[in-house]
């Protein structure tokens, strides 16, 4: 690693102050992306602000029929939380399959969502459930939050404090893992809520995207048969040695159908 100044503030205000005006300062939550990046010398921050000591970022609360999850909540805690399992079991299931046990015991929802890795799992859940991203500067709706490859709507110094998820009548997440990294090569989160049906796809493109054609078909008939002939264009999809764009486009259909079947169980 290159040298940097390490801080562990006790409050959001202190954290914001440490980050203000220093464009080479980086916040760190679980460190599951940042630390490997630092070890490979792919980043040279002047300061690392560890958010792990900030009490107001922790915790899972039932709110209405939904649930609000603190930004520093670990994937493991989401996966076993009685509140999450009650409100949206599909979210607990997704969290329980992120990475591996070591990653799940350090990685956080806030960190993952702020990072917007094209192959992360949470962005699909945030978009499909139409969650709200709460920050120290306001709120962001799910649509439009994930703007591109590692790019979100967060402004300089804006930190995610929590994410509020409504409940769903039916929801499921199906992931086809990259055989090597086991990140999502294609991950589809399907949710039917009182506001309608949403289908969000991660892994396949530069950032999470919705499939309107599937949403419209499922709104009329929430069954895998209803979407079996819907093809995703492959043009903008990712391509690498593990999956061509055409293969990913195909997998979107397969995983979407499997997610709908799982949601209907």
């Amino acid at each position: 690693m290159y040298d940097f100044a390490y801080h562990r503030p006790k409050s959001l205000a202190d954290a914001a102050a440490l980050l203000k005006g220093k464009d080479e300062a980086r916040p760190m939550s679980g460190g599951m992306t940042l630390i490997p990046t630092l070890k490979q010398r792919l980043a040279k921050p002047s300061d690392v602000v560890d958010l792990g000591g900030i009490a107001e970022l922790a915790g899972i609360k039932a709110e209405g029929s939904g649930v609000t999850i603190g930004g520093m909540t670990k994937h493991y805690d989401v996966s076993v939380s009685p509140e999450v399992k009650k409100a949206i079991p599909a979210l607990a299931h997704l969290a329980g399959h992120i990475g591996d046990p070591a990653v799940r015991n350090r990685g956080t929802m806030g960190g993952s969502v702020a990072n917007s890795d094209p192959a992360a799992d949470y962005p699909a859940a945030v978009v499909a459930l139409n969650a709200t991203v709460n920050t120290n500067m306001g709120k962001h709706p799910a649509d439009g939050f994930f703007k591109g490859l590692f790019e979100t709507a967060l402004k300089e110094g804006e930190l995610i404090t929590s994410i509020s998820f409504p409940t769903a009548d039916k929801a499921a997440y199906m992931k086809f893992p990259n055989p090597a990294s086991r990140y999502a090569m294609v991950g589809v989160f399907v949710a039917k809520t009182k506001d309608g049906v949403r289908v969000a796809v991660t892994g396949a493109g530069p950032a999470v995207f919705r499939v309107k054609a599937m949403e419209d078909a499922l709104a009329k008939d929430f069954s895998s048969a209803a979407i079996k002939d819907i093809k995703i264009p492959s043009g903008d999809l990712n391509s690498d040695i593990h999956g061509s764009a055409e293969y990913r486009a195909h997998l979107v259909g397969v995983m979407a159908r499997r997610a709908v079947d799982a949601a209907n169980k």
Partner: peptide, 11 residues
């Protein structure tokens, strides 16, 4: 070397 780490070399 595209398969230069465990991210791309499937063990």
């Amino acid at each position: 070397l595209i398969s230069g780490s465990y991210m791309d070399y499937t063990m």
